[in-house]
Design a protein around this nucleic acid. Structure first.
Lengths: 184, 184
DNA sequence: CCTGTATGTAAGCGGTTACTTACACAACAT
DNA sequence: ATGTTGTGTAAGTAACCGCTTACATACAGG
């Protein structure tokens, strides 16, 4: 691991534990095992380091790379749901950082939020339109219900309550949700 | 409005715009039109002021005071959904503060999060059990799906994307969600 | 008129923060 | 051997933060 990667990783952990203003550059440097001077030589400023952390650990590529499995039926929907949820969990620290910056609302952050929402909805639209033979006018609503429920469940359980529900509990939620939306 | 209320209100606005660490006591005092000394005389410390803001502007009492209307059927579910959503919107700044503090996770905040989740789920459990004659084992899952979808939709639209969807859009979402869960 | 209560102004204190400068050292490539 | 590159240490800067002290002022009640 290069020095730059060490610092990025330490910053990722610190920002997710204390937020941007709550984290000091001393802290990051010490946590990375490098000197503070090195940090500034590599990244120029705290803000720039923060930007690079967001780029490096974003959940967006993970969601974008989710492939829609062949087949039709509720199982496909459930599988996508599980994949999305496990992506969110894998990048939980990134999402914590995102949530911790909802105050402030710089255009830069606003763009990250929109990008995230759009990526998630694009994936789901893809799934639903390849899956259902229904009046298409319903698809956007199904997308919103499915995406919102998944996202809301994740935030409520994993972030607000700080627990990681066992797999069968997550699966039960996703199965129920899929059944409601897909029917059957 | 008493001086204390002026300070509380200013602090509420500042914290929701910049988060706890991003807000300075000078800023709050100036925004309230009082001197910084007065702020410290009234609240003792920044942390104590923050606590009082959370108590004073919490959305929890709003949710707790939502009454379950008489009648049965999907309309009741929709009505509850609309009431919850409008409570969330009315206390959007409070929820922003909550989200901005997910990093850190002091026991104090943890308790607020749990309390919020529990209050919401208690209300919904009340609604579902008075509404449906279904196998009760399904109720907790319905509660989670309904609550998560509502909450996720709110965060995604109002907080992440910073928009206030027009009433008919919110209603359409809630109507669809209720139909999926209640059937019919 | 006096006294208590609430607020303001001015000044500052000790600590912290992001960031910089100057210099030394080690590894490595030419 | 020499120069380049990457890192460390030491020291410090200017600004800012939460919070305090000391003192003045305004006003209401008895």
């Amino acid at each position: 691991m290069t020095t730059k990667e060490k610092v990025l990783n330490a910053a990722y952990r610190c920002f997710s534990k204390k937020g941007y203003f709550g984290t000091t550059t001393r802290e990051i440097a010490h946590s990375a095992g490098v000197s503070e001077v090195t940090l500034f030589r590599l990244f120029g400023s705290k803000k720039e380091l923060f930007r690079e952390v967001l780029l490096n650990y974003s959940v967006i590529p993970d969601i974008r790379s989710i492939s829609v499995p062949e087949g039709s039926g509720r199982e496909v929907l459930e599988e996508i749901g599980r994949k999305i949820y496990s992506s969110l969990r894998e990048k939980k620290e990134f999402l914590k950082i995102l949530l911790s910056e909802v105050t402030g609302l710089t255009e830069e952050m606003q763009e990250v939020y929109s990008h995230f929402t759009q990526t998630l909805e694009a994936l789901l639209e893809n799934v639903f339109s390849s899956l259902l033979s229904l009046p298409e006018v319903e698809i956007p609503l199904k997308v919103k219900v499915f995406g919102s429920a998944l996202f809301g469940f994740f935030i409520s359980e994993e972030i607000f309550q700080g627990r990681e529900p066992p797999q069968h509990e997550v699966n039960a939620f996703i199965e129920t949700l899929s059944r409601f939306i897909y029917g059957g």
